[in-house]
């Protein structure tokens, strides 16, 4: 039932993602203002973006500009490409037979992108933060992959459209709750969003963001928000039944569910304190991986004998 859009669907996709990213950033700034007791500030993301557009670029001594810029651009492009496999109701930009693997490959680009941005500035803080993110990747990536595999096993297909179709009666979140929670955690981790934001931590003077300014900073920060949106949007077809829902058309349900997941992630980011990478590493390997393995085993048993 999920069908590929004509070519112009690919042009609309970045626009939809940007609208979601702006809305999420706006919500985040409202939450921040509320916590600080300041007046609500919806337009702050737009003002910051405009400010970065006109800001003059700062340089550093002996920076590797090629790798530095490449990191930001790669993050932005990969975040959009990751969503090419995500259906909006019945439409999808790229109806790939290996959609799950494609999504996984595109969000792994963040590993290279964040490390490159940290490396390129030739700054100690950026370098430390770049390594922090690689360590964080080693923590969240395996549980994340097992969560993806669990949804694919449940549907018996790597095609996102088949996974949505398999949830016609029962959403996967009902019998794969562990995989769903781990997936959401790993989305926060891959977008190095709070509480997994040590790569941009204030304890390292902003980490990979320390030396980024002007358009470069805008590209990188936008890429991070788009990656968060892409991750949140993919949770809908994987676990929340995609466009399935009563009364309203499929695309509305996809939008509503994506907005709900995104709001939950942004709220969680403001609610919980930053988790150190070494601490996350132990939690990931001792708790999350065994939990996702048991979840995958349970789903496999149900699929084989159910």
């Amino acid at each position: 039932m999920v069908e590929q859009t004509p070519w112009w669907g690919g042009l609309l996709l970045p626009l939809v993602l940007v609208v979601f990213a702006l809305a999420a950033a706006s919500f985040d700034s409202v939450l921040a203002a509320k916590a600080a007791g300041a007046p609500r500030d919806f337009a702050r993301p737009l003002r910051s973006a405009a400010g970065l557009l006109v800001q003059q670029r700062r340089g550093t001594l002996a920076a590797d500009s090629l790798l530095w810029r490449a990191g930001g651009v790669a993050l932005l492009i990969a975040a959009v490409l990751a969503s090419a496999a995500t259906p909006l109701g019945d439409w999808v930009v790229g109806d790939m037979s290996v959609g799950v693997v494609w999504f996984n490959a595109m969000e792994v680009v963040a590993w290279a992108a964040v490390w490159l941005v940290g490396w390129g500035a030739n700054s100690a803080f950026g370098l430390v933060a770049g390594y922090r993110f690689v360590a964080q990747g080693l923590a969240y990536e395996l549980p994340h992959m097992f969560a993806l595999i669990t949804a694919a096993v449940g549907a018996g297909s790597l095609r996102i459209g088949d996974i949505v179709a398999a949830q016609d009666g029962l959403w996967f979140v009902v019998w794969m709750p562990v995989a769903f929670v781990v997936y959401l955690l790993s989305v926060l981790g891959m977008a190095f969003f709070r509480p997994f934001d040590q790569a941009t931590g204030a304890d390292a003077a902003g980490g990979v963001l320390a030396e980024l300014s002007g358009v470069d900073r805008l590209v990188f920060v936008a890429g991070r928000w788009l990656l968060l949106v892409s991750g949140a949007a993919m949770a809908v077809p994987l676990f929340l039944g995609g466009g399935h829902g009563p009364l309203l058309p499929g695309w509305t349900w996809s939008l509503v569910k994506t907005a709900a997941v995104l709001a939950l992630l942004v709220w969680a980011g403001r609610r919980f304190p930053t988790i150190r990478v070494d601490r996350l590493q132990e939690i990931a390997w001792m708790v999350l991986i065994p939990a996702t393995l048991l979840q995958a085993l349970f789903v496999s048993v149900v699929v084989v004998w159910g």
Partner: peptide, 19 residues
């Protein structure tokens, strides 16, 4: 497509760790 996308996925992770 599976092999192609898998090469991209594995190589990004491997090259970052290798770096």
């Amino acid at each position: 497509p599976y092999l192609g996308v898998l090469v991209i996925l594995m190589m990004i992770m491997e090259m970052v760790v290798m770096a």
